[in-house]
Amino acid sequence: MSVDADTVRRIGHLARIRISDDEVAAYEGELNAILGFVEQLSEVDVSGVEPMTSVTPMVLRRRADGVTDGGYPEKVVANAPLSEDNFFMVPKVVE
């Protein structure tokens, strides 16, 4: 598996990272190097091995259904660049 220049641009766009044209080649090399490194894992034969989801034998803990949080709108919007009446304000997005 390897990435080309177009894939680099696409990944950048999906992640909303601006990548200028002269940066593309560098990213392409770096990403391919990382993928090549990870690729080595495929040399191991894992047929018949259960995928591991946790390093210790744990099950997903579940919470009782009760309201224990919330009720602090001013804290929620405290870091927002812009807010009004405890709404976040963002540049207009309309479908």
């Binding site: 929620v76 812009l82 709404f87 976040f88 304000m89 207009k92």
Partner: peptide, 12 residues
Amino acid sequence: HDQHPNMSFVDL
């Protein structure tokens, strides 16, 4: 979208 001419309001 109708609270402000060029901003959208977000309620979570």
